[in-house]
Design a protein around this nucleic acid. Structure first.
Lengths: 356, 356
DNA sequence: CTGAAAGCGCTTACAG
DNA sequence: CTGAAAGCGCTTACAG
């Protein structure tokens, strides 16, 4: 059984000129039928299409870009590509851009302004039509100036400037909702594990926690507030400290899911059960959070959808339309890591941990 | 306080020609100093560099590519970007390519040959210098033909052809090691949850399981072998079936970590503890596996490192060197989800689950 | 060491 | 409706 067509019936060596020669029309005409950019007689259309097919012509986007100034590709400055958070974001972005015929050039800045600037520079050399920046450490001013050169979309911060669209997330609201949830379930001693303070959202998440406590007329206990880094190890370390110092708490609100996972792990190791002994709420709603044991309650940022919207925003900008999109509202996702605190017959996290 | 320099001292509108005009040399000379492609008098070098600096010249990679045929970018055909597995891979690839001055164009094929072929086509229009394909469903023949057009690296399969380098992983060995580990710990009733059968590696992983059992002279019990899909939900469903059907088992070997997470979740929900009641071993060593509660034993494929090597391989190919790299050896990572089976005082998974 | 010239593969006014 | 021509921003033999 023979194939009627080769599997890969295309060649990069065939040029528009050769196609033109092959079917006896001018290059201009070939260009026009390929791009549908002008009316061409049906007869020539057919001839051209056949030749394109037969020769396996693969149009050279670079040459096109050089001629008309558009590369149909956008640059993405991410931070840590191995992070499940960026993975979700990337999913949404790639999906949307691909569907619109755009290519995606990615680079990661590792939360370092200089690296991010290098990424931006590399992308400009490649003449991407626009750039999406995922939070990061670049100064607002830098982005504003960049947006004078080409369309820019940035997530995770609020910013207004010509040619620039920002998609800030309501971290404050989300964190407040998470904390309120714990309060409503009867927790009064809620530990907070903060994010990396160099990330702007970590302040907002902490503010949300503080606000909810204040609304409940609960005083702030510094012993309950722990520094973290948005990584599992940070969540684990903070939880260990909490336990080792004998701090009294019945619940933990971690500023992201990765830290919540680290916290859960330490509790597990110390023989404390979630949610029987300690309740936990995280933030972000990573894929793995729903599949933890037990599934963890968290604040969903709809990260993949955020990515989609960032992509839609850059697409708008590229078409000279003002983007209307904004980040999805944070949403509390109830799962099984929260329960009212155990009655105080010596069952707080503290006494259990010290009793071991 | 004023800045001495603007934050973004570059402009895409400055061309090499303008730089040349600005400092009174020919474009050729500017090109030569920028690329260090020929000896230029120190005096002119200095003049050119100053002009480049002052005008904020950003070389146009596209024009360069058109002139000399190299884009310095490579295409990556991934499958599901939101998957933690691809996230790790991407990390390793981007890191290596960036360091070498290459750009990365990503697209996802969603385990669908047609979509993957579309990705490949889009990348060839962009004239990437080479393509990395992460497993996927493209026929071997397709890749072989593609490699005649440009360098290709493919992970997850064994394949030899000119211009192509494959990085198959030893899934069989890994799976056998995982199963042996369970056997050595005294488990005889080991359930196996298989991967998506359309992925080539799932067969190898199943073969490894079978081989280990055979070596231990244990008969194959079909009731212990469950179909999965490499997703948490599949692992959960398989585990539920196992429990509901009252199958007798003391351990589970899941063909990947995501299914292991799903399995653990179901066990948790049914009141079975890991590892006290049931031991679990997964595969891949995703970031979240080390941070599960309890941390799960798994087979590490060193995915990020695999990504790095795939990138090194394409770099070799691009430099007309024969790649020497191969995938890292799978490695059993011992954590806390395995323990010898409980003594048979009615403590098997089966009796516990039915006693609830 | 350096410049003028041709060419990379397209697109797009400009004239029919 | 269609073609010849110029131009996009570089690089690279080719001659000094």
């Amino acid at each position: 059984m023979k194939r009627s067509k080769p599997l890969l019936p295309t060649s990069s060596h065939v040029t528009l000129g050769k196609v033109a020669a092959a079917c006896g029309v001018s290059p201009s005409t070939v260009s026009r039928v390929i791009n549908g950019t002008a009316i061409v007689s049906a007869e020539k259309q057919a001839r051209v299409r056949r030749a394109v097919e037969e020769l396996g012509f693969v149009p050279n986007t670079l040459a096109r870009a050089l001629a008309d100034g558009r590369t149909f590709s956008v640059g993405l400055v991410a931070q840590y590509l191995e992070s499940p958070f960026y993975a979700l974001m990337l999913r949404g972005i790639e999906e949307t851009l691909s569907a619109a015929g755009y290519g995606l050039v990615v680079a990661s800045g590792h939360w370092n302004a200089e690296e991010e600037a290098r990424c931006v520079h590399a992308m400009r050399m490649r003449r991407v039509d626009g750039i999406i920046v995922l939070t990061g450490m670049l100064e607002d001013e830098f982005l504003i100036e960049l947006a004078r050169e080409l369309p820019v979309v940035v997530t995770g911060r609020a910013l207004e400037a010509p040619g620039l669209h920002a998609l800030p997330s309501k971290d404050f609201d989300g964190a407040r909702a998470a904390t309120r949830h714990l309060l409503e379930r009867g927790h009064a001693r809620i530990a907070f594990i903060g994010g990396d303070v160099s990330h702007p959202d970590s302040h907002e998440r902490e503010r949300g926690y503080r606000a909810a406590l204040a609304e409940a007329s609960l005083g702030m206990d510094p012993a309950l507030m722990r520094a973290g880094d948005y990584l599992e190890t940070g969540g684990a370390a903070a939880t260990e400290a909490l336990l080792d110092e004998g701090v009294d708490f019945t619940a933990i609100f971690a500023a992201n899911d990765q830290m919540a996972a680290g916290a859960a792990q330490v509790l597990y190791r110390r023989g404390l059960r979630v949610p029987e002994d300690v309740s936990i709420v995280g933030f972000d709603d990573l894929l793995s959070t729903a599949h933890a044991s037990p599934p963890r309650t968290t604040v969903s940022l709809s990260v993949a959808e955020l990515g989609r919207r960032a992509a839609l925003a850059i697409l708008d900008l590229l078409q000279h339309r003002a983007p209307r999109v904004h980040a999805p509202e944070p949403e509390l996702v109830l799962r099984q890591s929260v329960r009212p605190p155990a009655p105080q017959r010596g069952g707080s996290a503290r006494s259990m941990s010290t009793s071991r």
